[in-house]
């Protein structure tokens, strides 16, 4: 297993945002993580990325315990993540944003720049590369987040709703981009509300509700699962989803 998270819980005061969640990811997989708002998906990601230390449980990456390691150490080990609310460096240009990521594996500016240019091209940001990040819209910023993480040379990428809020054309491009990233040999865990993304990309799906995994399996099995529909999706769910995004 590339990543193995066991019995992860995260408490905020007396409230348990994640309660005993497990996840095992094999190298080369694309795993989808779905669940209603507030199910604890982002919090779970934060535990996996070293952004926060889980209250219970442990995280093994490539066999090494990284539960208490810093976010920087996670990045160095090869776990990259994007933020649900884009956290791009607004006053820096697109290229500079990507270079910050590239500097993780390259100490010299020339080498970092070269890697960054390649990734900017791959992610379709070449035209905007000299613009400040603040000038991009949300879709552009999300793409920039992916580019930045990609530049750190990760083995595992955690994408938190990186494909939300896109037009149908942009969505197709983004799906193609995720495919290309996967072809580079990078393992992916993606949180997404858009079922189309999950159905086309994910090999396995985990359904989160109230902080734990209530179902998992192949995409088709999961969406057809009566228990999931009843207990989690509920009636009118799809309508709420659409309104939210």
């Amino acid at each position: 297993m590339l990543l193995s998270a066991q019995n992860i819980s995260k408490a905020f005061g007396s409230f348990l945002a994640v309660r005993g969640a497990d996840l095992a990811v094999a190298e080369g997989e694309i795993i989808g993580l779905i669940g209603p708002n507030g199910a604890g998906k982002s919090t779970f990601f934060n535990c996996l990325a070293g952004d926060t230390v889980p209250t219970t449980g442990r995280v093994l990456f490539d066999g090494i315990d990284v539960t208490r390691a810093s976010a920087e150490a996670h990045a160095r080990a090869g776990i990259g993540r994007t933020f649900q609310v884009p956290a791009t460096f607004e006053d820096m240009t697109v290229l500079e944003n990507v270079m910050v990521g590239a500097f993780l594996r390259h100490h010299h500016r020339g080498a970092a720049r070269e890697t960054a240019l390649r990734i900017v091209e791959m992610t379709g940001l070449t035209r905007q590369s000299a613009q400040r990040a603040r000038s991009l819209g949300t879709p552009g910023r999300k793409r920039l987040e992916i580019a930045r993480v990609l530049a750190t040379g990760p083995r595992l990428m955690l994408l938190d709703e990186a494909l939300a809020g896109l037009t149908p054309t942009e969505l197709q491009q983004a799906i193609a981009l995720v495919r290309r990233i996967h072809e580079l040999g990078i393992t992916l865990v993606i949180v997404e509300h858009i079922m189309e993304v999950i159905m086309t990309l994910a090999q396995r799906v985990l359904v989160f509700n109230q902080g734990h995994v209530i179902a998992h399996g192949k995409p088709r099995e999961v969406v057809a699962n009566e228990a999931v529909i009843e207990a989690y999706l509920g009636r009118g769910h799809r309508r709420r989803r659409r309104e939210a995004s």
Binding site: D51, E72, R81, G101, L104, R109, T152
Partner: peptide, 26 residues
């Protein structure tokens, strides 16, 4: 300004959490 150190400084200023996630030793 031109070095990795300078890029890291600006990244920290722009957002520590994001900088950390990219491996910047803040």
């Amino acid at each position: 300004e031109r070095s990795r150190f300078g890029y890291y400084l600006r990244a920290i200023k722009a957002g520590e959490r994001a900088a950390r996630s990219l491996g910047v030793p803040v």
